[in-house]
Simulated assay, not measured.
Amino acid sequence: MPALEIRALTAGYGKDPVLRGIDLTVTSGVTAILGSSGCGKTTLLRAVAGFVQPAAGTIDVAGTRVVGGGGGGGGRSVPARRRGIGYVPQEGALFPHLTVARNIAFGLPRGQRRNAGGVVAEALAMVELDPSLAARFPHQLSGGQQQRVALARALAPQPSLVLLDEPFSSLDAGLREETGRAVVRALRAADAAAVLVTHDQGEALSLADQVAVMAQGRFLQVAPPAEVYLEPADPQVASFIGHASLLPGEGDGAGRATCAVGELAVRPGHPGTAGPAGPAGPVQLAIRSEQVQIRTDGAGTPGEVVDVSFFGHDATVRLRLDSGEQLAARTPADSVPHPGEKVRLSVVGEVVAFAGQPGA
């Protein structure tokens, strides 16, 4: 049975709905809810946890209905403490006056807290922390260690579902990646499904088994990471995941399309959005930054460098074409052009094509 099943869920604050009739099934592994700030990610997590009462819809956790099933306004609701869900908030929320061991034991039923040494040791091992840390207080731990303790506390009662609300956002880049991978290993060791809320695309794509892209309280696409990236459901998903540039063009229905950068090989987006050889007629082309090659001379479409974002290992270059349209390119660190420089560009590989023009 699914660890989490949501159907037609509507929720919000006051009269303004934030979630608008969404569906989601989590069978196992990690599902990442990915979207920009204000799209409804945290509201969804809080509704599942029991901190927000939905206006309509149902929520089942491990086969037990915790929201809905009779009456109006979302029906009956099981109290948060009885849902059997582990919850890891953004900052960990450890009790500063309790040791690591007592923080972890706090997640257990009261009758089990006094003799919880074995459970604490097992939970620490699961999150890959040294048992000697059990006697420390939260302020004596690093940020990454604190987040792992918060996860250990959530896992100690052996829940079937764990909710993580942007748990790595306060960590630096290197520690964030290391902690994220340790958390996923711990979840798998505990055989617990998880819902991870994040606005970080790299985090969602690298850690999750399933990615649910959210915008304005609705899911635009729910699929494995590779499918979301390579077969986006619509132009909005394509531009959000990987920051693809969207250009209008004309498709020939035979795997080619013409746009401001010339004639390109195309493939349809999500299966069912067009024929196997791509759409015919007006199209929107999603061009990934890694597909755009820049050179300072020779053949290619002329353009001008608008600005450069340098990241050390590479750089993102924003370009303006003679047509006035813009697109982004990703270049190696040793070949970064300067703002205002005139360049030539070409596109390699197939680009994703969607039938219709913007706003159609």
Score class of each variant (00 low, 15 high):
residue 36 S to V: 12
residue 277 A to P: 00
residue 84 G to A: 09
residue 49 A to S: 11
residue 142 S to K: 13
residue 154 A to K: 09
residue 155 L to M: 04
residue 14 G to Y: 11
residue 251 G to V: 12
residue 77 S to Q: 15
residue 280 A to E: 13
residue 40 G to W: 09
residue 196 L to R: 05
residue 152 A to T: 06
residue 137 F to K: 14
residue 211 V to K: 08
residue 153 R to N: 04
residue 335 S to G: 13
residue 26 V to G: 03
residue 136 R to M: 07
residue 213 V to I: 12
residue 85 I to K: 00
residue 91 E to H: 15
residue 290 E to W: 03
residue 141 L to K: 05
residue 203 E to P: 10
residue 150 A to C: 00
residue 10 T to A: 14
residue 195 V to C: 06
residue 259 C to S: 10
residue 323 S to C: 02
residue 70 G to E: 10
residue 308 V to T: 07
residue 100 V to C: 04
residue 12 G to S: 10
residue 228 V to R: 07
residue 116 A to Y: 01
residue 124 L to Q: 08
residue 244 A to K: 03
residue 129 L to K: 08
residue 143 G to W: 07
residue 30 V to N: 04
residue 28 S to G: 14
residue 18 V to E: 06
residue 283 V to Q: 05
residue 265 A to R: 14
residue 312 G to P: 07
residue 272 G to N: 03
residue 157 P to S: 11
residue 36 S to I: 11
residue 17 P to A: 11
residue 200 D to Q: 02
residue 81 R to W: 12
residue 222 V to C: 13
residue 339 P to I: 08
residue 216 Q to F: 10
residue 105 A to K: 05
residue 63 G to E: 13
residue 254 A to V: 00
residue 60 D to R: 15
residue 337 P to K: 06
residue 322 D to L: 09
residue 296 T to A: 08
residue 356 G to Y: 09
residue 226 A to Q: 14
residue 80 A to F: 07
residue 271 P to Y: 10
residue 342 K to I: 02
residue 12 G to C: 11
residue 53 Q to P: 02
residue 207 L to D: 06
residue 289 S to N: 13
residue 16 D to G: 02
residue 280 A to V: 12
residue 173 A to S: 13
residue 51 F to K: 08
residue 295 R to I: 01
residue 336 V to L: 00
residue 77 S to F: 08
residue 4 L to F: 07
residue 227 E to A: 13
residue 355 A to Q: 06
residue 194 A to I: 10
residue 92 G to K: 06
residue 70 G to D: 11
residue 329 A to I: 09
residue 63 G to H: 14
residue 73 G to W: 03
residue 148 R to T: 03
residue 232 P to V: 09
residue 312 G to H: 11
residue 77 S to T: 15
residue 32 A to V: 13
